[in-house]
Amino acid sequence: MPSSALPWYLKGILYVALPAACLAALYLSIPGEVALAKTAGWSEHYAPAMPVCLSVYALSAGAIATYRRKMRLPGQMTALLGSLMALILAMSAQSISHLIEQSYMTTSALLVVAVSCVPPLTIAHLVHMAETPSQVKTADEEKAELRGMIDYLSEELTTSLASQSLTLVSRASAVVRELESLTKVTEEASEKVEKESESVEDILTGEEKAQHDEESKTRRKHLALARSIQETRESLEARGTTVTVADVCKALGISQATYYRYKPSEKVTASTLPLPA
Rank of each mutant, 00 (worst) to 15 (best):
P2T: 05
S4Q: 12
L6Q: 06
A21E: 04
A24E: 07
A25N: 06
S29Y: 06
P31V: 06
M50V: 01
Y57K: 02
Y57D: 05
L59N: 03
R68V: 02
K70E: 09
L73N: 00
P74E: 10
L81A: 15
L81H: 15
A93I: 00
S97Q: 01
H98E: 09
Q102M: 13
S103G: 09
M105Q: 05
M105S: 08
T107R: 02
A109T: 06
L110R: 01
V113W: 03
L121V: 07
L126T: 08
M129E: 08
M129H: 04
P133S: 03
A139P: 02
D140A: 15
D140R: 13
K143Y: 14
E145S: 08
G148R: 08
S154L: 12
E155L: 12
E156L: 11
T159L: 14
T159A: 15
S165G: 10
L168I: 12
S170E: 08
S170M: 06
L179I: 12
V185L: 12
V185P: 01
S190K: 15
E191P: 00
E194Q: 08
E194V: 05
E201Y: 01
E207F: 05
E208K: 14
H212Q: 15
H212Y: 12
E214H: 10
E214C: 07
E215N: 11
T218P: 04
R220F: 04
S228W: 06
Q230G: 04
E237C: 06
G240A: 01
V243T: 05
L252S: 03
L252C: 03
T258R: 14
R261V: 03
Y262R: 02
K263I: 04
L273I: 13
